[in-house]
Design a binder for these strands. Sequence first.
DNA 1: TCCCACTATGTCAGTTCTGACATAGTCTGA
DNA 2: TCAGACTATGTCAGAACTGACATAGTGGGA
Lengths: 181, 181
Amino acid sequence: MTSTLGFAILAVLARGERTGYDLAAAMRTPVGYFWTAGHSQIHAELQKLRADGLVGFEAEHGPGPQGKKVYHLTADGLAALRAWVTEPPRARPERDELVLKTYASWLAEPGLLRRLFADQLAMHEERLAGYEREEAAFGGPPPPGDPRFGNYATLWCGLGYERHRVEWCRWMLERLSSAGA
Amino acid sequence: MTSTLGFAILAVLARGERTGYDLAAAMRTPVGYFWTAGHSQIHAELQKLRADGLVGFEAEHGPGPQGKKVYHLTADGLAALRAWVTEPPRARPERDELVLKTYASWLAEPGLLRRLFADQLAMHEERLAGYEREEAAFGGPPPPGDPRFGNYATLWCGLGYERHRVEWCRWMLERLSSAGA
DNA sequence: TCCCACTATGTCAGTTCTGACATAGTCTGA
DNA sequence: TCAGACTATGTCAGAACTGACATAGTGGGA
């Protein structure tokens, strides 16, 4: 029973071998528009994946009390990942704290609420600008079948999401402003 | 240390008193475009909220081994909710299984992948149509300060999200089709 | 009259996730 | 040469969440 986090790790390893540290860095915030995890979770999951024979590693000399482990996909791991990709995803959790705050926003002081959405708008605009720079660097979509297609398609999803978010924040600010000081 | 789920419960109770069962129904899928929770979580959280003095209840005769408990916000609960609303939300978890599958999609069989996105497209179109019907039933945005403003604003967010999702699924299907059979 | 769906509350085991703690080698620049 | 940032692996306690189990009254229809 591999968890979704397990498949996230397999998906990154399918691009090439990496250490647990590299995986944690890849799944931290910056470009990770698909899944996040702390390093403590990743090391634990790698041990499970290894017990299931989906990944293997080679020990190398390096920093840390236990040296360095470079993980790679096994044939079983690749097969499991391939089978998982086209299965329908389980229902989205749909847990969005800003939307929940919005649901309760009729209780809030208008000034503080405008401040909240102005900050969120700035954050999403910044993120959108970053994604647009990344998209420009691509110079057009790679063909499906190319690993970079995965990166490009998730970036495209991120772009659409941030645009939607920016639009919604602006709509909220308009609504909040037209209702007086 | 009230959890986000706790605030979700407070936000629903701010509209009026409800039983745990009603809360669970409100936080199940249908209209819940903001937060979800199972009834087992809700009963446990209600007990915590009560220990913290943020909610109270009146026991009534009714079904079940323990009868019926109608919960309501206390003054402390309302104050806590009000203070929380305008605080910046903690970072979005950003855990989207479909996007993760997309990241690994270069490994998939094209036919199965098109099927996956066609199904997702149909689901989002259906959801969008439902939200559009709800929006039409509103007949324009209520003013901020009205509890229904919270509902309308979250619905607006849901509309934008589903439109973004529909667009992205269509874009994916185009990319996947132009690459041959 | 009996069955079933619905209302209603709760526990529990197991999984997932977060944040803190712990350890230690490498490399760069002041 | 020494400090500090970065690489690198791991444990652990506690919170959050899921799904199954358990119990029982109410109300409607066959």
